[in-house]
Amino acid sequence: MIGRIWAIALNTFREAVRIRVLYGILVLVVGANLMTIVVGQMATNEEARVTQDIGLAGISLFGSLTAIFLGVFLLYTEVQRRTIHAIVSKPIERWEFVIGKYVGMALVLTVLVVLFAVAMLFMLALQDIPISSAIAKAVVMCWFEVMTVAAIAIFFSSFSTPFLSGIFALALWVIGRVTPDLEAATHSASSTIKWTSKVALQIIPDLHLFSVSGRTIDGVTVSVHGDFVSWGYVGLSALHGFGWIVGLLGLAALLFHRRDFV
């Protein structure tokens, strides 16, 4: 089983690294990190804040967008180009194929997140800004966010076209990032808004968990520039993300299992 999943993952990685758009995104993120020198100098004494904020935002934003892009295309094109015919006719279960595609995507996204993080760390080092453990925790949480978004995209891609999957995944990512607003909406006077928010909170992954800077947790306002969350919190949010990843991939595998490849 592991060997078959790994075979699909390696092939997916090989396929994904040939997508030129990824290199464009990489250049964009590295460019954004380089810009922090200029922007940091404009904001006197705020170089560290600017570099960290832009660096982390780059990982979260471009990592998630890349996850959506890869997720909606890589599975769909297998079916559309019929390359899947020569694969699922071999002794591999369809769920193994879905997991393999996800693992391959996860490998590519991990490489990207690492490169984005290295670019940010390089900029911090260049400006003699000390690197705190908060940065490491924030990067790990960004990585979990990206992995969760990839699972969302794969889920939609298992039954829909890239365009619709992209729209759905993007919508879920945006809504998932504003769960505090949804929570506030559950106290709305309008019963429609109230119940819609309640349902949304149940069926949408809470991606805001991974982006805690500025939030008040246990009575403390956390910030990557000051007091930040503990590794325990990182572990719990990772567990939350992992739960969604398993659930979404399980559903994707179930839907994929029912499909006819004509």
Binding site: T83, H85, A86, S89, K90
Partner: peptide, 16 residues
């Protein structure tokens, strides 16, 4: 399937 070999119609493979 472990004991079967299959050639699909107009085979499409990963062209890279």
């Amino acid at each position: 399937r472990a004991r079967v070999g299959f050639l699909p119609e107009t085979p499409y493979f990963y062209d890279y």
